[in-house]
Amino acid sequence: MFERFTAGARAAVVAHAPAEARRRGDRRVGTEHLLLGVLHEAEAAQALGVDVASARSALAVLDDAALAAIGVDARGVERATISAPSKRTPFTSGAKAALSRAVAVARRDTARRVTAVHLLAGLLDGDRTDPASDVLTELGVDRVTARARLAP
């Protein structure tokens, strides 16, 4: 599936995003991991105006808030990491949908290859209840403005 992806986009999806999921102790790659993976690519990070460290911090704030909402104080608790699995880390249905949207954006732009910017556009076009959307909101990213910056 990833043969139409540029080297940077492919790395974001098959290397960086699963690594971010393992780093957070998650067993599946979600849209939040795709966002972190895409932010490893300078072009996408610059277009969004956010770096991967800021996005990781925003995601940690959201995690802590979710735990606090159910009465768990996670401040100071070290998060578990998962060692590299022997097979590929599965993607959530939301992550698969974001990848499909990225391919559709590339087609609409008549691009021959899917880039990290197309991946970012696929994430920005996602549902507002999506974890990546929550991270973008926490970071104060205006999705409409960011999407306009990505337009060719």
Rank of each mutant, 00 (worst) to 15 (best):
residue 14 V to Y: 08
residue 14 V to H: 04
residue 16 H to G: 03
residue 19 A to V: 01
residue 21 A to V: 02
residue 22 R to L: 08
residue 23 R to Y: 03
residue 23 R to I: 02
residue 26 D to Y: 02
residue 27 R to T: 14
residue 30 G to V: 03
residue 30 G to W: 03
residue 31 T to A: 06
residue 32 E to H: 08
residue 33 H to W: 09
residue 33 H to Q: 15
residue 33 H to E: 11
residue 34 L to V: 03
residue 34 L to W: 05
residue 36 L to T: 03
residue 37 G to F: 05
residue 37 G to K: 00
residue 38 V to Y: 03
residue 38 V to M: 07
residue 38 V to W: 02
residue 39 L to I: 00
residue 39 L to E: 06
residue 40 H to C: 12
residue 42 A to I: 01
residue 42 A to W: 07
residue 42 A to S: 13
residue 43 E to M: 00
residue 43 E to T: 02
residue 46 Q to H: 13
residue 47 A to H: 02
residue 47 A to N: 02
residue 49 G to R: 09
residue 50 V to G: 09
residue 51 D to I: 04
residue 52 V to M: 04
residue 53 A to Q: 14
residue 54 S to G: 10
residue 54 S to P: 01
residue 54 S to Y: 00
residue 55 A to P: 07
residue 55 A to S: 07
residue 59 L to E: 12
residue 60 A to T: 08
residue 60 A to S: 10
residue 61 V to A: 10
residue 64 D to I: 02
residue 64 D to F: 04
residue 66 A to K: 11
residue 67 L to V: 02
residue 70 I to M: 14
residue 71 G to N: 06
residue 73 D to W: 04
residue 73 D to M: 01
residue 75 R to L: 08
residue 77 V to H: 12
residue 78 E to V: 13
residue 78 E to G: 15
residue 79 R to D: 11
residue 80 A to Q: 14
residue 82 I to D: 05
residue 82 I to N: 06
residue 85 P to H: 12
residue 85 P to F: 08
residue 86 S to A: 13
residue 86 S to K: 10
residue 87 K to Q: 15
residue 88 R to G: 12
residue 93 S to T: 15
residue 95 A to L: 01
residue 95 A to Y: 00
residue 96 K to V: 12
residue 98 A to W: 01
residue 98 A to S: 11
residue 99 L to W: 04
residue 103 V to E: 14
residue 104 A to D: 11
residue 106 A to S: 15
residue 107 R to H: 13
residue 108 R to G: 04
residue 111 A to G: 02
residue 111 A to S: 14
residue 112 R to H: 09
residue 113 R to W: 05
residue 114 V to D: 08
residue 115 T to A: 08
residue 119 L to M: 07
residue 119 L to N: 05
residue 120 L to C: 05
residue 121 A to R: 15
residue 122 G to I: 10
residue 122 G to F: 14
residue 130 D to R: 12
residue 130 D to F: 09
residue 131 P to K: 05
residue 131 P to L: 07
residue 133 S to G: 14
residue 135 V to F: 11
residue 136 L to N: 05
residue 136 L to H: 07
residue 137 T to L: 11
residue 138 E to W: 12
